[in-house]
Structure formats: C-alpha cells, structure tokens
Design a protein around this nucleic acid. Structure first.
Lengths: 208, 208, 208, 208
DNA sequence: AATGAATGAGACTTCATTCAT
DNA sequence: TATGAATGAAGTCTCATTCAT
C-alpha cells in the first residue's frame, strides 16, 4: 500500500483505526453541539490532541469526515434494526420491532439526529441523505407491503406510510432528546402505538 | 428615528418594506438552495441588486436575518392553521383540518422546511426553534386534549401524540418536496388518515 | 450667499452657529473619550439630535471637523495667554504668567490635549499641529529672547527652552488630568518653578 | 503546542521569531507614517510579503500588535537607561545620565514617540500607557528622591519633577524629530541643562 | 506518520459620504 | 434646510487546506 494512497482506501493499523475513530467521535459531538461550520478543523484536532496533518491523513476534507460519520451512523442504525427483528416472522411484528428499535436508537443518538438535519441543508451532503432515506424507508415499507399482501392491513401506499413512521421516530427523538425534554418508556410506547394504529388502522393490537 | 437605531426598531417606508421583503425572499431561496453558511451576504445583496450597506440597514446581522425569516414563517403557518379551522367545532375535525393545513403549508414551503432543519443545528437558532415547536405542539395538543376530555378518544399523552403528528407532516414535506419526489393529493390523504388513526385509534372515520 | 456655498465660507444664523457649536462640543468629548476613528459621524449627529445632512452642511468632512476643533482650541489658548500677560512688562514675569496660564488652560482642557496628541499621529492633521506649535513656541521664545537680550538670563537657544517649557505643561496636563491623577495648586507651583529655574538658572526667584 | 493556542503563548522557531520581528518593524514604520487606523493589516502583510493569515498567527489582533510594539519599546528604553547609569552612584549624576539617555533614545525612535501619542488617545491602549508612564516616572523620581534625602537638592515633589523631566524629553523628541526640524548635540545639552536646573535649582553644575 | 507554520480567498461588518425626498 | 436611506470600498479576522521539516 503506497504511502500516498488517498485517505479513503488506506489500510489502517490498529493505532490508525483508533485515531480515526477518536477524530470521528470528537467531531460528532462538536458538530452536534456547535454546528458543522462553526466547528473548525483545528478544534477537532486539538480536542483529540493530534496535529492537523493527521486529520488530512485520515480524511480528505472536513466534508468527507461528516459524510463518513453519517454513513457509519446509517450502517449502525440498520444493523440494530436487523438485529431487533431477527427471528420475527409476522410482518406486523417486524414493523413494530423495527419502529421500536429505530425509536430507541434515535433517542440514544441525539447528536446524529442533529447532524442528519444539518446534512439535509447542503447539497453536497443531501445527496447522501436521499440515498440513506430511500434505504430506511424501503426497509420499513417492505414490512408494510408484506402485511398488505397478506391481507393483514388494507391496501395503501406503503412508502407514504413508511415515511410517516419514520417521521414520528425522528420527531420524537428531536422533541425529547434534542429539545432537552425528559423521555421515558411510556413515550416510546405511545409512539409505537401511534404508528401501528396509523398503519394497521385499529387499536385492538397492543404492543408487546 | 435616530440613525443608529437598531435595524429592529426602525420604522420603514413603503419602499423600505419592499426592499426588506426582497432581501428576505431572496435570502430564503439561497439559504434553502445552498445552505446558510455557504450563502454569503454579498450574494444576497448582489441578487437583489443593492449595496452591502442596505443589508445591515435592515438586519443587524446574517443570523438576525435567518431568525426573522423563521419567525415570519411560523407566524404564517399558524395564521394558516387558524384560518383553516375557523368555524369548526368538533375537536377531531379541528385536528384533521389542522393537520391538513400544516401538511399543505409545509409542502408549499419546502425552503422553509430546510431552513428550519438547519436552524435546529446551531444553538443561536435552536433556542428559537424550541420556542416555536412548543407553540406548534401546543396548538395541536389542545385539540387532542379536548377530544380526550369529550371522551371521543381514549386518554393518553396529548403532547406526545401532537409531536407524532407534527413529525409526520415534517417528514412528508421533506420526503416529497425536499427530496424532489412527486407529491399528490392522495399522499396528503394517506398522511392525514395515518395521523387520525394514530390519534383516534380506529379507521372508521373517513377524512372529508 | 448661495445655498451651495461650501461649509467653510457659509454665513451662519444664530441657530446655525449654535448647532455648529453643539456638534463641535459633542464631537470633542467623544473624540477624547473614544478616539477619533472609533467615533462615528452617526454617533455625533445622534448625540446632538440632528440628521446626518446637518453635519455635512456645517463641515465638509469628519477630518475638517477635527481641524476646526483644533484651530478653535489654539485660538482660545493664545487668547488666554495674552489676557494673562496683559499689563506685565518684565520678560521673566511674562514668561511666568504665560507658563502658568498655559498650564492652567491645559489642565482645564484635557480633552483637547488628547485630541492634539492624536492629531500629531496622522499627517493630514500633523501639518496643522506643526504650524500651531511653531506659533506657541514663538510666543514663549519671544519672552526668553527678550530676557536674554536684557541680560536677565544667560544666552542660549530660546526656542529649545521654549519647547522644553511647553513639554512640561503638556506632560503635566497629561499626567495629572488625562491619567486621572489628582492635581492641585502646589503641583502647578512646582511646575512653574521647575520651568523658571530651567530657563533662568537660579532658584532665588520665587513664584508669586 | 496546540494549533489553537493563542498567538501570545506560542513557542516560535527562529524563522518564526524573524517573521514576527519583521511584521512588528514594518508595522511600526507604517503606523508612525500613516497612523494606526489608516494602516490596514493588509498593507502590513503585503509590505512584509506574507499572507494575511501569518499576521493572525503571530498577533491575535491589530490592537495586540500595537500593544506589543509599545511594550517592547518601553522595555528597550528602560534597558538603555539602566545601561547608561550603570556604575554611577551620585543621584544627580544618575539623573543626568538618565535624562540624557532618554533624550537620545527618544530622538532615535521618533516613530515610537508617534505611536505612544496615538496610544494615549484610545482607552484600550491608554491603560498600558498609564502603567508605562508610572514606571518611567518612578525610575526618574527615585533618583530625585535620593538626591533630596541626601540633601543635595531642596525637598519637593519628586514625582512632579520627574514628570516635568519626562515632558521635556518627549516634547523635544517631538519638536525636533517628528516635526522634521534639525537636532544636534547642543540641543540635547540645552535640554539636559534645563532639566537639571529645574530640579537642582542652580546653574553652577555643568553637565559632563 | 506527524507536526504546525503558512497561505489567501473570502466571510461578515462598519462607516464616511451622498442625495432623493 | 433637514432627513435618513443607500452606497460600496475597505476593514478586521477566520479557517480549510497545504507542505517543509
């Protein structure tokens, strides 16, 4: 591997991996706290205690760093969802488990929620956001479609519903985490119930 | 009155009001298109065809301009909602009309949706956002509470539900307007229905 | 008198004279307090309660305003000196009275001292300062020369001595007025004595 | 160490020190020539042939630069005085040597004299000036007090006299250096003599 | 691998001055 | 005469990025 390979396709040593992770972690909190633009690269490297050169060794630019953070987050969210629905078979149950895991994850990662909001506002990042959203919506829509096909719920626009579900998760994460409000399990239950009712159309089902 | 009076408490002539509006309108589109930070004040004044000084005659800073845009937007949204539910009495109907008007407004103002997303990411704006959200949520929660009190829907956390409703509107505005996807009336219907089901808990009610 | 005559050769009505004086007085305190450049024309007109147009009706520029203040001050200082030595005939006595009046005047006009200091630092004003100093030094040097010619003091460079005398006055005004220190008559006496000794060369003379 | 360490506590390389000195030297001449405010930072960096960023690497602001110049000058002046009176023991002789060295230094640094004059006119610098003056006056007053205690001169206000002495030096530096007039050794002799007479009170002493 | 000095375009903002009203 | 909206050059300062060491 050549020393002058670009930051993206560099094979990292363990120490390298740690450094990279530290930079990403610190940047994430700073970006979330102060915003992307108000956070200078120098603050990030200072916070981690390395020189500026290190930063540009691991990331080709500040933009690229944000993109990496965002991609990692999406990967982590989906991994969580997949883990949550593993074993379940009933589409409605899959839906519920998915919603619950998304909600939990979002609430546990308020910084990411902020970063995502920001990313939507500048085209160089929005492109990635669109792709990410398509994936997330598809994941949810798949369960809804399956439920429709199985006759469990009436026919309808699965993607619109999936979008609505996604909106509820994000909004609650924002309201209760970002806004600084308290948040307990009952809120999650209310939200999950709200979504299931919205999709399924009756309130007889009780969440597990 | 005085020359050094701050831009905020300046009495404007008709022409002045127009100039100010033009600046806000142009800035809104630019901020939405390129992002807040990437849009330079010089681009805004160039776009409107005035000197850089006028900008600071009307707004004390670029930040202040965004805040003004955001406040105006909130005022307009609420005015729309109030107009929509005027005459209606049944809380559920008020809720429905409110949701529909919010959804419509959000879809008609995708730029504002972007600006709001950005505003949440930097503390100097987020403060205002929190206040705005509190207001909007209260507006919706009021209807839900009334419905609960009237026994029309089962008891529950009205604010959480209002938040969920708000999330659906925002998300759809983003998904279908910002993301560039198409959006037609059937989508709005699906969304309204989703929200009502989520709140009311059964699908027997059909939206108008 | 044409309406478009330049500000300098305009004949002023009583009200006009008052306005002009008010502007100069207010500007003097502001310039002394905050400095020339940090004081904006808008602050001056606001402070006096007039529009910007008025300012440029009376003064062709901010620089011109300062120049006017400075010239007025010099005129006032010399008028004071002349009044003080009126009637005296002995050159040494004239010198003493002149020193005392200069000292008193300087201490009573600390703002002017500041303005003069500033004026020396920018060429467009320094030119005037050089002229003014030449005049003031000549006034003092004249007495010293007369004393030399009369054999009252030994021959020497009268201008250098006059300069030294001037330096003592200015410095004391700065030290005790600008620096905020207290200043009483005994200080003035010490200073006058210092100067007389410096010029005359013996301490037998006692100041009045 | 850290990249965002403030320019004040940065350890400089030899090249860095040189650059910093070059910036200060060039700024000093420009400030003295055109004035502080009329001299733009861009002129300074252009004059030295560096990018605008280096300026802010070495100085946190234009104000800070002036303060640094002023402090260095004071340090240099005092170093010169201490060197001049080294070995002397007689307080009157110390006084004389001190006056002579101050006068010489002031005349050799007319730019600094201008900068100091300016500095007195704006509060953010005046604070430093007051402190500096206190120090310089004390240095001189110490010798005068010692002379009084030793009965070499009559009792009196040593600080006022020291101030007067200081005034003579400054004024001469201004008159003969800044004003563009000629200045030779005889002027210095006249001035030294003037001061000694002023303090000591008789003309029998002849300066060395 | 790492550092941090250096770059310089460009950001936001101020303000002396003009001029239509 | 008087006002204050408008101008726009110029000012100070920031910061992503590069590169010699």
């Amino acid at each position: 591997m050549s020393v002058t390979s670009s930051p993206n396709d560099r094979t990292l040593t363990t120490r390298g991996k740690d450094r990279r992770d530290a930079l990403m972690a610190f940047a994430t909190t700073q970006f979330a706290e102060k915003g992307f633009h108000p956070t200078a690269v120098s603050e990030i490297v200072d916070g981690v205690g390395v020189g500026k050169g290190v930063f540009y060794w691991y990331f080709s630019s500040k933009d690229e760093l944000l993109l990496n953070i965002l991609r990692d987050a999406l990967r982590d969210l989906r991994r969580n969802q997949n883990r949550a629905i593993r074993g379940a078979d009933d589409p409605i149950q899959c839906l519920e488990l998915g919603i619950r895991s998304t909600l939990t994850w979002s609430i546990e990662h308020p910084e990411v929620i902020r970063l995502v909001m920001f990313a939507w506002t500048e085209e160089q990042f929005a492109k990635d956001m669109r792709r990410g959203r398509r994936i997330v919506i598809s994941d949810t829509a798949r369960h809804i479609s399956r439920a429709m096909d199985a006759g469990l719920i009436e026919q309808g626009d699965a993607r619109v519903m999936a979008t609505a579900v996604r909106g509820v998760s994000d909004e609650l994460a924002r309201q209760f985490a970002i806004s600084g409000d308290l948040l307990d399990d009952s809120v999650i239950e209310t939200a999950v119930r709200f979504c299931l009712r919205g999709v399924v159309g009756d309130s007889t089902r009780t969440p597990t």
